[in-house]
C-alpha cells in the first residue's frame, strides 16, 4: 500500500497542473496581503463605519490574525475548485491516457488501488492547506504582526485575546482539511464515470457551486435540504472564532460558542467523505474497464 501511495503521489507531483493550485493560492494571498498592507486603513474604516459612531476602538486591529481570517473567508470558497483539478483526475486521467487497464493488471485489488489513489489525493489536499496556512497565517503574522483578534460578524462583534487565537486557527485548519477531503472524495467519485479529466473536474465544480448557492440562499423551502448538503457544513471552521459569554456578558477565554455545531458539521462531512469513497469503490469494482 505504501509503495502504491508513493507511486500515486509521484504521478500527482509530476504533473504541472498540480502546481497551478499552489501558484494560484500564493498569488491570491499575495495580492490580498499587498492590498491590505497598502490600504488596509481604508478597508478598516469602511468595516468599522457603523461601530465607530458610538465606540472608540484603539489598538492594532489590522493584524495577522484578522488578515488571515479575511483571506480564509475568501479562499476556502475557491480552494475546492483547485482540489477538483487533481482529485477529479485521479481515475479519469488514467482512463484518458489509456493506462487504467495497465494499472489494474498489477496484483492489487481494485479497492486497494482506489484507496491508494484516494490517500494520495487527500495528501495533496492537505499539502495545499498547509501551503495556505503557511502563507495566509504565518505570512500575515510576519507582515502585519499579532494582536487581539477583532472580528466583525453580521449582528455582533467578537474580541479574542491574542493568546486565545492560535489554537482556534489550528482547529479551523483541521476542520478545513476535513471539508476539503470531502470535496476531494466527491471529485474522486465523479472521476470514475468519465474517460477524460475535463468532465469530472467541471462536474465537481458545478456540484460545489450549485450546492453552495443552495446553502446560502435564505429561502424557506431550501432550508429543509440545507442540513443534508455538505456545502452547508464546509463553513463550520468559522465556529472556532465565536466565543461563549457568561451571564454578565464577559467572554470566556478558551471557549467556543457552539462546539456541537462543529461536531455535527464534522460528522456530516465525514459521512459524506466515506459515502463518496464507498460509492466510488462499489461503482469501480463493477466497472468494465475498456481503456
Amino acid at each position: 500500500m505504501y509503495s502504491l501511495v508513493q507511486v500515486e503521489l509521484y504521478k500527482i507531483f509530476k504533473r504541472p497542473r498540480t502546481y497551478i493550485a499552489f501558484g494560484a493560492v500564493a498569488a491570491l494571498i499575495g495580492i490580498i496581503q499587498f492590498g491590505l498592507k497598502l490600504d488596509g486603513k481604508s478597508y478598516l474604516d469602511f468595516m468599522l463605519n457603523d461601530l465607530s459612531s458610538s465606540l472608540e476602538i484603539d489598538g492594532k486591529i489590522l493584524n495577522g490574525y484578522l488578515v488571515c481570517y479575511v483571506m480564509l473567508q475568501l479562499l476556502l470558497v475557491h480552494v475546492p475548485l483547485l482540489i477538483a483539478l487533481i482529485a477529479a483526475d485521479m481515475i479519469s486521467g488514467e482512463a484518458n491516457m489509456g493506462t487504467l487497464r495497465l494499472l489494474l493488471i498489477k496484483p492489487y485489488s481494485r479497492t486497494t488501488l482506489l484507496l491508494a489513489k484516494f490517500i494520495a489525493a487527500t495528501i495533496y489536499t492537505l499539502l495545499l492547506l498547509v501551503w495556505l496556512a503557511i502563507l495566509a497565517l504565518f505570512g500575515s503574522m510576519l507582515l502585519f504582526g499579532t494582536d487581539d483578534m477583532f472580528l466583525l460578524k453580521t449582528s455582533y462583534v467578537v474580541l479574542l485575546k491574542e493568546s486565545d487565537v492560535f489554537w482556534r486557527y489550528i482547529g479551523a485548519f483541521g476542520f478545513a482539511a476535513l471539508a476539503m477531503t470531502t470535496v476531494a472524495s466527491l471529485g474522486f467519485f465523479l472521476s470514475v464515470f468519465a474517460e477524460n479529466s475535463i468532465g469530472p473536474i467541471v462536474a465537481t465544480m458545478s456540484v460545489i457551486v450549485f450546492f453552495t448557492i443552495l446553502s446560502t440562499l435564505n429561502i424557506p423551502i431550501f432550508n429543509l435540504i440545507k442540513p443534508y448538503l455538505f456545502t452547508t457544513h464546509m463553513i463550520g471552521w468559522k465556529e472556532f472564532f465565536d466565543i461563549k459569554v457568561n451571564d454578565s456578558n464577559e467572554a470566556i477565554i478558551g471557549s467556543i460558542q457552539n462546539p456541537d455545531k462543529i461536531i455535527k458539521a464534522a460528522v456530516v462531512l465525514f459521512i459524506h467523505t466515506i459515502g463518496f469513497f464507498v460509492a466510488t469503490v462499489l461503482v469501480f469494482r463493477k466497472k468494465d474497464i475498456l481503456s
Binding site: 465606540l55 473567508q73 466583525l152 460578524k153 453580521t154 449582528s155 455582533y156 462583534v157 446553502s215 435564505n218
Partner: peptide, 21 residues
Amino acid sequence: EFNTKNYKLPKGITLEFEDDS
C-alpha cells in the same frame, strides 16, 4: 453607562450568508 446605536453589517461584507439567528 451609555447609549449605543444598533449594530448590523451587511452579509455581503462579512461574507456570512448562513443565518440561523
